[in-house]
């Protein structure tokens, strides 16, 4: 913990290209149907994530999942879920445009997040995600590895979060 961050090289921040992003709400009892429809086993515990190919899912609430897929697959996913809706009630809402995704990577990624993230990130395992706050903006925080995080933030809160990360990057670069 004593190693001071000397340069931007220790952490970088980037805005990621758009992705098909869907909010799935379904009774946990019907999870198997949802897993079959989406094509990967949806995790059953809040915070857990699951990825297969270029699709991924994270459990954000007792009946809530965040789904990611390539943009070109969005219409097909919506249609696949619509096909099972009559027998397996659920809500699938496209939120691809609701949020932007920011990637924070590098050895100091965790420390950079600590400027505004109240969570103890040491307790957050790679592959997990949770809804939380970054400063005063609600975000979904995804941890991909020890050194790689993603923040999904509502479009109108993006400038605030992104500017704060910029200020923090400059602060880290100055070494104090």
């Amino acid at each position: 913990m004593n190693a001071p961050v000397k340069s931007f090289a220790a952490v970088s921040v980037a805005v990621l290209p758009p992705v098909a992003r869907l909010n799935l709400r379904i009774a946990p009892a019907d999870l198997d149907t949802a897993s079959a429809t989406f094509g990967l086993p949806l995790p059953g515990k809040i915070g857990q994530g699951q990825a297969k190919g270029d699709r991924a899912a994270w459990c954000l609430g007792p009946d809530e999942w965040l789904l990611h897929a390539p943009e070109v697959e969005q219409a097909a996913i919506v249609a696949d879920f619509a096909a099972v809706r009559a027998l397996t009630p659920h809500s699938l809402t496209v939120i691809s445009d609701r949020e932007f995704t920011i990637a924070i990577t590098g050895p100091s990624a965790q420390e950079l997040l600590s400027v505004a993230c109240p969570l103890d990130l040491l307790r957050m395992a790679p592959g997990t995600a949770k809804r939380t706050l970054f400063d005063s903006a609600q975000v979904v925080l995804i941890r991909d590895s020890d050194d790689a995080f993603r923040i999904e933030v509502w479009r109108s809160f993006f400038p605030h979060v992104s500017e704060l990360l910029d200020i923090a990057l400059r602060e880290f670069a100055c070494g104090l």
């Binding site: 009946d63 809500s91 809402t93 496209v94 939120i95 691809s96 445009d97 609701r98 509502w154």
Partner: peptide, 12 residues
Amino acid sequence: LQVWLTSTTEEW
């Protein structure tokens, strides 16, 4: 009730 709510304020 079998109902789910999702904010789409910023989707549109």
